[in-house]
């Protein structure tokens, strides 16, 4: 199924309405969404169902809802990120929220303000949801203890990026159906990846088998205790996999510190046709983006819509984040 490319005609009447959404709306299990462990195996399928509704909704020409009407969502990005911050911004706006995106990376932090100072200042402005990205692991958790609103972790250091895991799961379920029987290989820089940690936690929660593949310098030595099988050889690791999830390699880690060179990395761990053929037939390729083409993934594979879910992931990103924001608000009842 190539969901993303069989678009609904712009002239068709809307099929997903405010009412459809309200019917599927479920309260988020926790006050904050800081890590994949804030979810549970019962709520995840419901969140994905809600996500599916938002996917259909987003494909309609009219994309305005009132779920978050009157609410304020603040995007607090201490690290530069165009795609994640715009994904959250679009998600919140489509739900009817007032959105303020603060690129803190280039403002008050440079003036010496601490994370807590910034949080307290913002808290005084009474937002309803804070979406936070920070380079330090645990930053979102710390913020959640200091503010009176819901906090959504949009990536904290190398710890977690839980909405990414949710959108990845949504993409997988739409492409392959039931995820519990799948074997998923996460490949590349596991050590420094919050995407990997969130995905491992969520996929295992849902009963999928997760493998980690990468050079020993990029896979934590104790990763086998996460309940994953660890491989350093792509051929061995990819055999029997249904999904190959490639991770972005930070280029500063390439020049000899952890990996000798980009060409060596691509030779042994970069995903191309030859390596993909070692996985199961019909295996899907994913990447959280932005990609280093020719380093961790060959364009030939990344751009092949028959195998690549990479563009779907971006679309699912907005839908999954809408599901998270909407269900967080569903906890609040009608006290607004």
């Amino acid at each position: 199924m190539k969901a993303a490319y069989s678009r609904v005609s712009m002239t068709q009447p809307p099929t997903v309405t405010e009412q459809t959404i309200q019917e599927r709306l479920i309260p988020f299990p926790r006050a904050h969404f800081l890590a994949a462990s804030d979810l549970n195996p019962y709520v995840v399928p419901q969140l994905l169902d809600l996500g599916d509704a938002f996917v259909d909704f987003n494909r309609q020409s009219s994309k305005a809802l009132d779920v978050l009407h009157g609410r304020t969502v603040v995007n607090l990005f201490f690290e530069n990120s165009t795609r994640t911050s715009s994904s959250f911004e679009i998600a919140a706006k489509r739900l009817g929220a007032d959105v303020v995106t603060m690129p803190v990376a280039s403002s008050s932090v440079k003036k010496g303000e601490t994370l807590i100072d910034t949080a307290v200042t913002l808290n005084a402005m009474k937002p309803d949801i804070l979406v936070v990205r920070h380079s330090a692991s645990g930053a979102a958790e710390l913020l959640s203890q200091k503010v009176g609103c819901a906090v959504v972790n949009a990536g904290d250091g190398r710890h977690e990026h839980p909405t990414q895991a949710l959108l990845d799961l949504l993409s997988m379920r739409r492409a392959l159906g039931d995820v519990t029987s799948l074997t998923i290989a996460i490949c590349g820089d596991i050590t420094h990846s919050r995407v990997a940690r969130s995905n491992v936690a969520l996929l295992q929660m849902m009963g999928a088998r997760v493998r980690l593949i990468g050079p020993p310098t990029l896979v934590p030595g104790d990763a086998d205790r996460w309940g994953c099988e660890v491989f350093h050889d792509m051929r061995e690791g990819l055999a029997g996999c249904d999904v190959v999830m490639m991770l972005r390699l930070q280029l500063e880690r390439m020049a000899g510190a952890l990996v000798p060179s980009t060409r060596e990395y691509f030779r042994f761990w970069g995903l191309d046709r030859e390596k993909l053929a070692w996985a199961n037939e019909g295996a899907k390729v994913m990447h959280p983006g932005p990609m280093n083409r020719g380093v961790e993934i060959d364009s030939d594979v990344a751009d092949d819509l028959d195998v690549s879910l990479i563009q779907d992931q971006v679309e699912m990103g907005v839908a999954a984040r809408m599901a998270v924001l909407a269900s967080l608000s569903a906890r609040w009842g009608d006290a607004a």
Binding site: G256, V259, P260, E264
Partner: peptide
């Protein structure tokens, strides 16, 4: 083992092995 025997940056061990 390291680039230009400099002791700092890893050499292309995999490609040389091949």
């Amino acid at each position: 083992a390291t680039k230009a025997l400099g002791g700092e940056r890893m050499a292309e061990i995999g490609l040389m092995d091949e």
